[in-house]
Amino acid sequence: MNDLLYSHTYQIQGRDFEHGGEASSDIKEALKRMGINPQVIKRTAIASYEAEMNIIVYTEKGELLLEVYPKMIRVTATDRGPGIEDVELAMKEGYSTAPPEIREMGFGSGMGLPNIKKNADRLLIESHPGKGTKVIFEIDIPNASV
């Protein structure tokens, strides 16, 4: 599990809606080039996109770290945003603290974290209100398709 095949860090600028999703598109392309199972790529891309949009919607700045191991992909989304007061509540579908203008953009519907959970095999959220949030998720690669 220690043999890291590939890693890359993507800087995400908060409120930069124009480029929102760019890092996740790049992650998708990088995984494609590695010849990883398409279902695994799609799940990773969807979960990454939600994590990326969370950084853009709620924080000034953050990053996505992509790590590819022979048997799994790990994505770590870190930000120094406001943090999540109640992680359990934030995991509920439909619960959202997003302002109306974010909802008008097609996000902030309270599906982000549940959507990450749905696509990931493991999810860990560490949040400290006022300091920031770290979301780590892993997706297994079946039968070592790398």
Binding site: G20, G21, I46, M105, G106
Partner: peptide
């Protein structure tokens, strides 16, 4: 088919094929 117009519609489309 959507009423959203921002670039995220294209990003979403790309991610979802």
């Amino acid at each position: 088919i959507t009423g959203i117009t921002n670039p995220q519609i294209v990003r979403t489309a790309v991610l979802m094929d």
